[in-house]
């Protein structure tokens, strides 16, 4: 327990010292929010069933943070730790690999939450965004989305031979997902053929779920999203555990 606490605290410090990861999870989403604010203004839009673009932006950008934290920060940290022999050094101590993984999950999750809180705070203060949902539901949706996405990062770091190859695959997965999942703009404006592709993007389900819960829709409307994410979470945990290597 003492090791887990120390390890988690250490990883949190290291995360914040890494300018890229701190920027993409904490600052980048805010920049996007303000860009939305400038472009779309404060009027309700028919594209989002009468909600303002900014109201929708908060859950959408939360999905973006989750994707970046899971695919960029998580993949990079774990792949680098393995390639540089940092995990190998840990292997010579009595510490369990589980503690390494759990500390990593806690930190990435805490940073993702912090990113979301900053978004909500900025949205409330600057644009008085409207939250129609239930805080508790939103929280559960957020935890489920985050954990199911972090698994992808662990799997990539576990199966790709080098940091570079893990990074390339992470980017190849991340970019189409950001644009085709509806995180940045509603997929309804895309051609039908492209909309079909979005069904294969795991992030689509995060966007749908978070946006729905944010707008106050019941869970019953999102059983598919929940099913896909729970499935991803289970696969993620099993494969991460199986593919974990110290070196």
């Amino acid at each position: 327990m003492k090791s887990l606490l120390k390890m988690t605290w250490m990883e949190a410090k290291l995360f914040l010292r890494e300018p890229a990861s701190a920027f993409f999870t904490l600052v980048f989403p805010l920049i996007y929010l303000f860009m939305y604010g400038m472009i779309s203004g404060n009027e309700p839009t028919p594209m989002y069933d009468g909600q303002r673009a900014l109201d929708v932006a908060i859950p959408s950008l939360t999905a973006v943070i989750i994707a970046m934290a899971g695919l960029m920060s998580n993949t990079m940290t774990m792949a680098t730790y393995r390639e540089k022999g940092i995990l190998r050094r840990l292997q010579t101590t009595p510490v369990s690999p589980l503690i390494v993984l759990v500390a990593q999950v806690i930190v990435i999750f805490a940073m993702t939450s912090l990113g979301m809180l900053l978004l909500i705070a900025a949205g409330k203060l600057v644009y008085q965004v409207n939250f129609a949902g239930n805080v508790f539901s939103m929280l559960i949706g957020f935890v489920l989305s985050s954990l199911s996405f972090f698994g992808i990062g662990f799997i990539l770091a576990g199966i790709m031979p080098t940091v570079r190859s893990a990074w390339v695959v992470a980017m190849v997965l991340l970019y189409p997902m950001l644009f085709l999942s509806g995180a940045f703009f509603s997929i309804e404006i895309l051609p039908t053929a492209v909309q079909k592709v979005s069904a294969f993007m795991p992030l689509t389900y995060v966007v749908n779920l978070l946006r729905g819960l944010w707008a106050g829709e019941p869970w019953a409307n999102h059983l598919l999203d929940v099913g896909v994410l729970v499935g991803m979470l289970l696969v993620g945990v099993i494969i991460s555990a199986k593919t974990f290597r110290w070196e």
């Binding site: 003492k2 090791s3 606490l5 120390k6 390890m7 250490m10 410090k13 290291l14 010292r17 890494e18 730790y81 540089k84 022999g85 940092i86 190998r88 050094r89 010579t92 101590t93 009595p94 510490v95």
Partner: peptide
Amino acid sequence: LQQSNLPDRMKVWEALDLYASFYP
């Protein structure tokens, strides 16, 4: 070990403090 590293941004005292927590 012949080849191993610590995270680039981990400070000397932090490494010792962290590793100390692994042992009884």
